[in-house]
């Protein structure tokens, strides 16, 4: 169902020239898809970061975005959100340009992308997820605060509502970000490594939350780094290394061969991946 690459450009896309994908007819992107990406290329200083990405993400699934460091995972999310300029291609959110569907898309940036010494309480940060419903110039009201408290409660952070955000642990900060995402009340979520550097208990609670979101027909595109848990967490995965190596239901796509294509000659990761695949097969 997913075309792997465009053959006419494959020779120019540097690292994986030998990968000849399965050229097949690609069905029309359906307007119902939460996120469809057409031939997207993003470049920094004329160096392509992601090349010719073509994807259609199914609704109501947890989708993992997996690839080595520098594969362009974060860039792909930012390009979908129009945060980085796009060299070519286009992105459709429920069949419309992102700028018209803003309120349907939630974003959880990497934890490291913000300054945790900022003078704000956990509640302040979570309330930010509801700012778009308030609109310009309207101050944060009681209702927004009450909703934020609910979101905090849902993630078990209500005791820390009035703590300065820098005093939270890494896992708590990540959960605060997820509470903020809940406040956005979107249908499609783009999450950049929500499970990075969190302890086991936090990971369990976050995954539980993600599954609950899935039950409520939310679609989540999640950048993930831990290959061992991929089959556990995701219904669908995208293997990215500048280009889409493979994308589809996890059990079809998460194969050793695809991982080798994605991670190249990195043997340590490769063997970890092999173990992961083996474990998944058992």
């Amino acid at each position: 169902m997913i075309r792997l690459f465009r053959l006419d450009r494959a020779s120019r896309a540097a690292p994986y020239q030998n990968d000849v994908g399965r050229p097949g007819a690609f069905p029309e992107h359906s307007p119902a898809s939460p996120l469809s990406i057409h031939d997207l290329t993003v470049a920094y200083h004329r160096q392509p970061v992601i090349w010719d990405v073509d994807l259609e993400i199914p609704e109501g699934k947890l989708v993992g975005l997996i690839g080595p460091n520098g594969a362009g995972k974060s860039t792909l999310l930012k390009a979908c959100l129009e945060l980085v300029p796009v060299a070519s291609g286009l992105v459709r959110v429920y069949g419309q340009p992102y700028s018209k569907r803003r309120e349907l898309v939630g974003y959880v940036p990497q934890k490291e992308s913000v300054d945790w010494d900022f003078p704000a309480s956990t509640l302040d940060v979570v309330a930010m997820g509801g700012y778009h419903r308030l609109g310009w110039f309207r101050p944060v009201n009681k209702r927004c605060r009450a909703e934020s408290m609910q979101a905090l409660d849902r993630l078990g952070l209500s005791d820390l509502a009035h703590q300065q955000i820098g005093q939270l642990s890494g896992g708590q900060q990540q959960r605060a970000f997820l509470a903020r995402a809940l406040m956005q009340n979107a249908k499609l979520y783009l999450m950049d490594e929500p499970l990075a550097a969190v302890d086991a208990a936090t990971e369990t609670s976050i995954v539980e939350l993600l599954r609950e979101m899935k039950q409520r027909q939310k679609t989540c595109l999640i950048v993930h780094h831990d290959l061992a848990t991929v089959t556990d967490y995701f219904d669908w995965i995208i293997l990215l290394n500048m280009r889409v190596v493979a994308a589809g239901p996890t059990q079809e796509v998460f194969t050793q061969e695809n991982l080798r294509k994605t991670y190249g000659g990195n043997l340590t990761i490769l063997s970890a991946a092999a173990d992961a695949v083996q474990n998944a097969g058992e």
């Binding site: 930012k78 959100l81 129009e82 945060l83 803003r102 898309v105 974003y107 940036p109 992308s113 913000v114 300054d115 900022f118 704000a120 302040d124 940060v125 930010m128 700012y131 778009h132 308030l134 310009w136 110039f137 309207r138 101050p139 944060v140 903020r180 956005q184």
Partner: peptide
């Protein structure tokens, strides 16, 4: 612009995605 200043100072990317 208190709320807008706060969100765009703390997390400019989120601010932009929310329409600020």
């Amino acid at each position: 612009c208190y709320k807008e200043l706060r969100i765009s100072s703390f997390d400019p990317e989120l601010a932009t995605t929310l329409g600020f």
